[in-house]
Design a protein around this nucleic acid. Structure first.
Length: 264
DNA sequence: ATGGCTTGCACCGCAAGA
């Protein structure tokens, strides 16, 4: 089964691209972030026409997350969770659902703006709350995937110019430590389970020809619990949608899991 | 070079993203 994540930076603008991409790739599960629309505006019918069901936590203008899954996949609508339980937050940044027996968490981590700002403090608090909740969630659901836009580059190898970026938002010690705390729960960065091209990134700034210069960062991730990591056979970044007209600044990350290889 | 682009909203420029 193929699990993918993509920050689309407005599902209204990017819907044709998401439809084209799904039609071409037919992934089993697709997590979307920054859908930037209310629940009433969610284009469920367009995805149903492609045989995908949707669960979503929408918000007018900002944030918003969704999970699309092929209708053939088993799904229990009673255990869908929106937002981090116990963390009071009007911003819609997390949705969780169980698909084919796998707990899929679709997350849009706060941007953080800059270390020292209120937004940065909120980013760290949000991750802290996520960590605390995940401690229990991973026991309840040992087969768990945390996928989304983390707004964190975990290591120097994930940054186009680590000397310039060191200490800045997205690549600061506090954020790297927060990422490490998530990994310490027993989650594995699927992308780094395999040999990858150097300078592999998932986001390029719209400005200053960042894509042309490959001046990007790897900030979108798929973290897998041990049983899933052991059954993961591939993890790739699909850079092609970044070259399409009117692209999102992020591109999809895809992990392929051999379901017959999962134990536990 | 602290800009540069893109989005949404609400106006006729602004905030926010990363």
């Amino acid at each position: 089964m193929k699990f993918a994540t993509w920050n689309v930076n407005s599902l209204k603008v990017r819907l044709p691209q998401v439809v084209d991409w799904l039609t071409a790739h037919r992934v089993d599960v697709l997590c979307l972030q920054e859908i930037k629309l209310s629940n009433a505006q969610f284009p469920s019918a367009e995805f149903e026409a492609l045989d995908y069901r949707s669960v979503y936590a929408g918000q007018k203008s900002y944030n918003g997350v969704a999970i699309l899954a092929r209708t053939a996949i088993s799904f229990d609508e009673t255990d869908v969770i929106r937002n981090i339980p116990g963390f009071n937050d009007p911003q819609q940044r997390l949705i969780a659902a169980t698909l084919a027996g796998i707990r899929v968490l679709c997350a849009y981590f706060p941007n953080g703006q800059a270390p020292g700002t209120d937004k940065f403090a909120y980013k760290l608090e949000w991750i802290d709350a996520l960590c605390n909740w995940l401690t229990k969630e991973i026991i309840r659901y040992p087969k768990l995937a945390l996928m989304g836009d983390y707004n964190i580059a975990p290591a120097a190898v994930d940054v186009c110019d680590p000397f310039r970026w060191e200490g800045l938002n997205l690549f600061s010690p506090d954020e790297r430590a927060a990422f490490a705390r998530l990994c310490a729960l027993g989650l594995v960065d699927a992308f780094r389970c395999f040999a990858q091209e150097e300078k592999s990134y998932t986001w390029w700034d719209y400005r200053a020809g960042a894509l042309r210069r490959n001046a990007g960062l790897r900030i979108d991730h798929i973290l897998l619990s041990s049983p899933l990591a052991a059954a993961c056979v591939r993890c790739t970044i699909d850079k092609t949608p970044r070259r399409w007209p009117q692209p999102s600044d992020h591109v999809p990350v895809i992990a392929e899991i051999e379901m017959s290889g999962i134990d536990g």
